[in-house]
Design a protein around this nucleic acid. Structure first.
Lengths: 255, 255
DNA sequence: GGACATTTGTGCGTATGTATG
DNA sequence: CCATACATACGCACAAATGTC
């Protein structure tokens, strides 16, 4: 095996084989391969993509199929196609550090982008078995569920849900809605500082809801994180599920 | 948005929406959703899956389509189905911790599985711009490329490549081939200890080569890591690219 | 054993999506 | 734009295996 797209530029080099009849259309596989090059930074913004004819040759498909892949990428805003000139890379990846002191606003702000949190909905509900275990409360105990979305420069970066024990965090939703900051929301509930205890990372296809929230073309891949934040005493203050557009973000673990 | 499959058991609860016409077949999306539940440990080994009729209802598809998803999972060994009884979970999830002291053998051994590394090929080549930057050597300087695969209980977990500066690590490949351990291979080159300086995580579809190396059904999602290991003096000793089957592994960041 | 409900397995016809040339 | 081949998805119907009463 070679990890072709990872180390070197597969899209611009030797022929890459596709997988037929595995439930994933050829045009999507090609689009994903190119998107992976962009996400990894190997195809820089402004760079010119191979011509349709060359892509068709590289992936051993009809030119119609290569065209469709480029059309999909153009619809997603990853590339821009100009008649008679070619296709060019539009987007750039955004590194997203993960660690004990992970805070969205600081991450994005540090990278020179404007950060903002957007509360979509909040409600109280009894904790499911999984939520109860993570938050260290009894199953069925009331918890606060907050659905939100976070942006950098107006582009949605992550969408997800968070759960907070009640009644301690009864005022979180309102404070978060007002400030757009999780840190400020938790502070309003008496949490001076918090740290990330653990993060689990997986990946899958975006659901239609996620696609809508992240302004993604449906069927794209999302990185999914499940994390627990605890206060200075080690008490869980937040269980979060986040979905990141794999095309726009690269998670980074330092240390 | 809801992150349905992530927070709670979507497969066994409320209806989950699929993405139509995005180049990914419905049966594969359903198979992926169930595989993710298994990988996250939310569907325990031996647990009975919902009936075909119920799955069809939940995902709003025909029973034939739900059947095909189960057939795909059965072909991958994730579930086993018995006529008149139902389908049951076969595989078990494998958490994979990532941190400064990340070592494959320890990770897998700690989880109660047998670990083993398998060298596929090794060669010397001039460093590309990316490799040179990561390893802190001059572009074009000779580096050692090692392609390998790692197993737990005989099941491929990760496949990838690593790069090492030359001439310092001229003996790495042979030592690694003999022991199947990166730690032992580095030790043979005088590296008493090493730590992981950074890890970047992204996700995309598996290439056919990766699918073959990981014994994956083609077109599945892989988590891709790029990591730099440094010695006690902070000198880079290894740049690694790894592809993990997203169905079998969940990356975990502690702290 | 019989009767019955549940669940998986199978066949067939049809419409749409995908890919080629 | 067309024609062709194949994969995907649906709907209906029925057979086969299992478990229960």
């Amino acid at each position: 095996m070679t990890l072709t797209e990872t180390g070197d530029a597969a899209v611009t080099e030797a022929t890459t084989e596709l997988t037929r009849g595995a439930g994933v259309a050829a045009w999507r596989q090609i689009a994903d391969a190119i998107a992976a090059e962009i996400a990894a930074g190997r195809l820089a913004p402004g760079a010119q993509l191979p011509t349709e004819a060359r892509l068709a040759e590289r992936f051993a498909v009809n030119r119609h199929t290569a065209r469709r892949a480029l059309a999909a990428l153009a619809a997603e805003g990853l590339v821009r196609t100009a008649q008679g000139k070619g296709s060019f890379v539009e987007a750039r990846p955004l590194p997203y550090p993960i660690g004990p002191r992970t805070r969205f606003s600081e991450n994005i702000g540090r990278a020179g982008h404007g950060a903002g949190g957007e509360l979509i909905a909040a409600r109280e509900l009894p904790a499911s078995a999984v939520v109860a275990e993570r938050l260290g409360v009894a199953e069925g105990a009331l918890v606060l569920e907050v659905r939100s979305r976070r942006l950098a420069d107006g582009v949605p970066i992550t969408a997800g849900r968070s759960y907070h024990p009640l009644p301690r965090f009864a005022g979180f939703a309102e404070a978060y809605r007002a400030t757009g900051s999780v840190t400020a929301g938790l502070a309003a509930c008496g949490v001076a500082d918090y740290r990330r205890r653990s993060t689990a990372i997986s990946a899958r296809l975006a659901t239609p809801e996620e696609a809508a929230a992240l302004d993604l073309a449906p069927g794209r891949i999302v990185l999914v994180t499940e994390a627990v934040n605890v206060d200075e005493a080690g008490m869980p203050v937040q269980l979060t599920y986040g979905a990141f557009a794999a095309d726009r973000v690269e998670l980074r673990v330092e240390g």
